[in-house]
């Protein structure tokens, strides 16, 4: 982990020791309202479930979700562990960020890898993004849910991301097979959440449901939340492939004939498995630059995700099968 990032995480951790320093500049009104709503959701879960967990994917949405949890339970630490599902193809910078943030904040970070899939050598190059995602993410997540017996899991999904998500509840019920039935969702009125489940069933909770991508960035900016450096533009080795810029993060990326990695100023709007995440060319090196770029962006953030493109109902299909 490079020194400035380590230091920023350390000073971040100090913010949450009692007594907390008084904040100088108040948050924007709408962010304050979103923050209060999300904190309320998290406390409802902590109070009513016996074994909750926060699914932490290391990206900006997870950073905001974790930040909200630190605030919701302050001066206590969040009363649940974090769970990362490691597909083994995450960017290296993500993994070191994950480990540093957990140790500096004193949080338990559980990591789930589908060892069976790893032994079979499942990877996105030979097996395609669908099989890789199914085995190393969806199945691994189900394994983690079953192994630890979580009855509630926080996820960072937002309703503005995708059409199927626009209709998902904040408290989203899953049967014993971790499946979502979009036709049979519980009505969700006011801020009054039904948390009743039977043994073996679980609930996915989305505290960022009502946030937009811009809200997330503005909050990171205004409340000074540390994020993985890959979000900021830097010169990085990339290859151009099927209209996407793919970063050569390690030697496992097989180069096609005629491909040579090229150093370009790039950054990521969303982070996932490096072979499946398209970069954008950008000069945005600060949060202000990123927000500015956001305001003028002409493509949605998920367009950099290769797994969403197969057909437009594809996210709904994945969710029914248990993808987060």
């Amino acid at each position: 982990m490079n020194e400035p990032i380590l230091q920023s995480i350390q000073s971040y951790a100090r913010r949450f020791r009692e007594p907390a320093p008084r904040r100088e500049r108040p948050l924007s009104a709408h962010l304050r309202a979103l923050e209060a709503e999300s904190m309320h959701i998290m406390r409802e879960v902590a109070a009513e479930f016996s074994n909750p967990v926060m699914l932490y994917s290391i990206g900006k949405d997870s950073a905001v979700m974790l930040h909200l949890a630190l605030k919701a339970f302050y001066p206590s630490l969040p009363p649940f562990p974090l769970q990362h599902v490691d597909s083994t193809f995450k960017f290296r910078d993500m993994i070191s960020f994950r480990d540093t943030i957990a140790s500096e904040l004193g949080l338990e970070m559980r990591v789930e890898i589908n060892e069976e899939g790893r032994a079979r050598g499942i990877n996105p190059f030979d097996h395609g993004s669908q099989v890789h995602t199914q085995v190393m993410k969806t199945e691994a997540l189900r394994n983690a849910m079953t192994r630890h017996g979580y009855d509630a899991a926080f996820g960072g999904a937002r309703r503005d991301e995708e059409k199927a998500r626009a209709k998902e509840r904040i408290f989203s019920f899953r049967d014993a097979n971790h499946s979502w039935d979009p036709k049979n969702q519980r009505p969700e009125l006011w801020h009054n959440y039904n948390t009743k489940i039977r043994k073996g069933e679980s609930i996915r909770v989305f505290p960022l449901s009502n946030w937009t991508e811009l809200d997330v960035w503005q909050y990171i900016l205004e409340d000074e939340i540390p994020i993985v450096p890959l979000y900021f533009a830097a010169r990085r080795p990339v290859v151009e492939r099927d209209g996407q810029l793919i970063m050569v993060d390690d030697e496992r990326l097989p180069l096609r004939p005629g491909e040579t990695p090229d150093h370009r100023m790039i950054r990521f709007r969303t982070l996932g498995c490096y072979p499946l995440t398209g970069a954008i060319e950008s000069e945005a090196q600060t949060l202000e630059d990123i927000v500015l770029e956001m305001l003028t962006a002409r493509t949605s953030e998920r367009s950099g995700r290769l797994i969403d493109h197969d057909e437009s109902g594809s996210m709904e299909k994945k969710k029914r099968e248990g993808y987060f």
């Binding site: 309703r159 503005d160 995708e162 059409k163 199927a164 998500r165 626009a166 209709k167 979009p182 036709k183 969702q185 449901s209 009502n210 937009t212 811009l214 109902g313 709904e316």
Partner: peptide, 24 residues
Amino acid sequence: LLLDGLEAEREQGITIDVAYRFFA
């Protein structure tokens, strides 16, 4: 079609569920 997110709705051409949209 932008709003009717669930596949069943798109096929039947009706809006079954509540969808939340954001703009500024």
